[in-house]
Design a protein around this nucleic acid. Structure first.
Lengths: 257, 257
DNA sequence: TAGTGGTCTAGACCACCTC
DNA sequence: AGGTGGTCTAGACCACTAC
């Protein structure tokens, strides 16, 4: 058993006390000065220990207030049910999901013409650097930044569906608008990854240290070819994705919760 | 434009230089002492900036060696094709996937009888604290820790399928073994989440700071009820999950890569 | 105004790697 | 041996929040 550095001992001790409920979710930790006295360490050493827990997503800190144990509540997104065309409502699937969960959604929206980034071009099977329309959405739930969503449409598609390039929302939803033009998406390729946020993402999503992002890339296909590529960036601490595969009648028949 | 703290300026400057290729993947950064001179800051301040980049997963550090720009290579796992019963090979789907990618897999394995944790019990629709069999797998690719996988089987199922409780691998795969007993999984409910690793996970997966884990929970159902719940923990920097939904003939017909 | 965390410094000593 | 990062200290000053 090798000797642990002191800041590790601080972090471990506090983690144990958080795990066993001494400090519950939302409660405040003792101040740095108190902890320094308790562990017979300098304030800086205590800070090292605390910053470890911060970067592990266990606690947060705010100037003038102190350290607080992080609360976890997650929003579930059913990706296999998403964007069903027999959708009962107008508006997009996101708002419906959020309202159904008893929460209040809002979003900011913008449309621009861009050159297609490499990552997107691969998936849309177009030349990198060619033109595409980007529809970008910044989403909030109860005024907390929740996710960003960037959908790219290739240039050839915009020729057939000019409203994609117009600013402002498309009331019936873009998927349905395209379907009305005979461009029906019959398949999706989803990719899911995780990493720490870039500074830009941290700003948009108001993510503190220790919170990863969940990246969801969906490429939509007609029977002929890919028609759109959507990259959604979620706060990892607030979201979970669900997929249903095959026959789940055994699960759904007596659903309570 | 408010003034940034000096350690932020250090982090931002280095991030820019990494992004624009001044320091490419795998290359070494200047030493702390050199950076301190360059930014006219104390060594501790430079360390704050560097540790920011470490916790963002952009660089790693090793004692005696220095700081290095992280390399990214990801392994893709197709979750919708996974565990297909018409699978051509013996052995489990994981090994097949890895070998197909030209990599060398190995795993350690253990079986134990446990009391069902809350999280699992909910999904298997059994009492929390009741008995279940846990089959646990620690997986490596080219000797790099890759993922852990813990599958729980409820007690009632183990009565019908006693080999589940025996130590050692089941050659034909557990899914096929169960199918041979008339217990066929016809549906899966998948849940995907991300967070920073616990110290235990960081140890098993040899994860450094700044790397999140990807959590994949799959509950398998017969037409009657849930029969198993598998929780897989991936290193977030090395793995990506894919799902294919609906008709993707347009994508697969002229697949090159 | 008092208490909290945030930034920054200068310096000491240790542990690890390479030569 | 010399250079690298890792740990730790003591103290200063700033910025934010509460009262």
């Amino acid at each position: 058993m090798s000797k642990q550095p002191k800041y590790q001992q601080v972090a471990d001790a506090l983690r144990r006390e958080i795990d066993n409920g001494t400090y519950g979710p939302g409660s405040r930790l003792p101040s740095e000065a108190e902890l320094a006295a308790r562990f017979d360490a300098s304030r800086n050493t205590v800070r090292s220990g605390l910053s470890l827990l911060v970067s592990q997503g266990l606690i947060t800190s705010s100037q003038g207030l102190g350290y607080e144990v992080r609360k976890h509540e997650v929003f579930e997104l059913n990706a296999s049910r998403f964007e069903n065309l027999d959708f009962p409502q107008n508006g997009d699937a996101y708002s419906t999901d959020v309202v159904n969960a008893g929460r209040r959604p809002h979003q900011t929206f913008r449309v621009e013409v861009t050159t297609t980034p490499e990552y997107i071009a691969q998936r849309l099977k177009v030349e990198p650097g060619s033109r595409s329309v980007l529809r970008f959405c910044h989403r909030f739930v109860d005024d907390v930044p929740w996710s960003t969503q960037a959908t790219h449409y290739p240039d050839w598609l915009v020729q057939e569906a000019p409203r994609l390039a117009e600013p402002g929302d498309i009331d019936e939803g873009t998927t349905r608008y395209l379907a009305g033009l005979g461009i029906e998406q019959v398949g999706y390729a989803d990719e899911i990854a995780t990493r720490m946020p870039t500074p830009e993402e941290a700003r948009l999503l108001e993510i503190g240290p220790g919170v990863p992002v969940l990246l969801w890339t969906r490429t939509g296909y007609t029977t002929e070819r890919p028609v759109r590529c959507t990259v959604t960036t979620f706060r990892g601490d607030l979201n979970r994705m669900n997929y249903e595969i095959g026959d789940l009648s055994a699960r759904n028949e007596n659903e309570a919760k």
